[in-house]
Design a protein around this nucleic acid. Sequence first.
DNA 1: TAGATTGTTAATCGATTAACAATC
DNA 2: TAGATTGTTAATCGATTAACAATC
Lengths: 210, 210
Amino acid sequence: MYEKSISSAVIKRLPRYYRYLGDLLENEVVRISSKELSEKMQVTASQIRQDLNNFGGFGQQGYGYNVEYLYNEIGKILGLDKQYNVIVIGAGNLGQAIANYPDFEKRGFIIRKLFDVNPRLIGMSIRGVDICDIDELEEYVKHNKVHIAALTLPKNKAAQIASDLVSWGVKGIWNFAPIDLRLPKDVRVETVHLSDTLMRLSYSLKEMEE
Amino acid sequence: MYEKSISSAVIKRLPRYYRYLGDLLENEVVRISSKELSEKMQVTASQIRQDLNNFGGFGQQGYGYNVEYLYNEIGKILGLDKQYNVIVIGAGNLGQAIANYPDFEKRGFIIRKLFDVNPRLIGMSIRGVDICDIDELEEYVKHNKVHIAALTLPKNKAAQIASDLVSWGVKGIWNFAPIDLRLPKDVRVETVHLSDTLMRLSYSLKEMEE
DNA sequence: TAGATTGTTAATCGATTAACAATC
DNA sequence: TAGATTGTTAATCGATTAACAATC
């Protein structure tokens, strides 16, 4: 059966809806209309309704949306009702930052191991997660289900490790190296181009001066 | 004089062009046509030509683009020919990761100071950059030109610090806290929503299973 | 029932791609 | 000059917004 795929513009906005709904939930708001939410989020009410209706009718005419219900539904759409085994390759500051960030665990992303080449790091642990020798990576990945590998290692190593990981069965790559990974199309890659965002910032600072 | 502003879709792509041209330059490629570049980057040649022509005619008919020239021109457009004084608020792993990343300095983003509340960090230094008590932040910002403040601190502190910084004259915010900062419109904000990218990854992993 | 607000279709807007004349 | 490839206009495509009938 054919389902038309959702545009990536919509997907990109889902985490933001999720975040706002989570805040509303914390503040014990029970219901919200697309109009109210649109004012908070500074988008059009039309866009909110269009976006949500890609996935089904979560609202009710004359009432709006139930915050908790919508929050949970978007969570399911995003796959946050499942658990993911995550490993981090590269246990430098960025790798450690990821391992230390408690929110990820809360959303079902469980950091299982870190790997590094640096003998001074190997054997240490971060919030109870061991840092292992990268030589043990292949063995580990082949014997343990790894849903997501976060790559926080230098640019020149990232491409090789990524294709190794994929050949050992990893399907999800969260890449922090400033390169575009070319991987089989059944592998999902999200790249965080930190320096790109910094360049956009300097662009807009420059624009401002003129 | 009125200049039509460049769409953000175009701006978002500039750092990527810059990256590819930098790689070509390293490989001593002298010239490239939009067609060749489009194949490398997996975009249309049309888009490349359209994008570049927002800023001027950098190419030459029958020849293509001179790699070094185009690289430098895009660098200027992005404001990378200038230097920026950067401070990092929050000297945890992520703050340290930023201070440690040598590529930023290479592109003109000079990390001047880190600030933190944690007494165990205060007084330490990262690659020669001091970690100061956050109580000294106001004084520092008022007496030193700060172009960009990177916020690598918990969500609940970020909004307050951001508006303080802005009231003390900072115009550029590189935000890593998972919130949308509301700041005066002459302040430029780039937010890196790490957890949003992770959620998009889990979304697409989920899609794959079906 | 009347009022509110959704779900959804239709209209608009903007971004991408195609095409080709200009020109190196 | 002939061939190549840009710069740029026109056509297409997709995403956003507006409008409103359906319905709670």
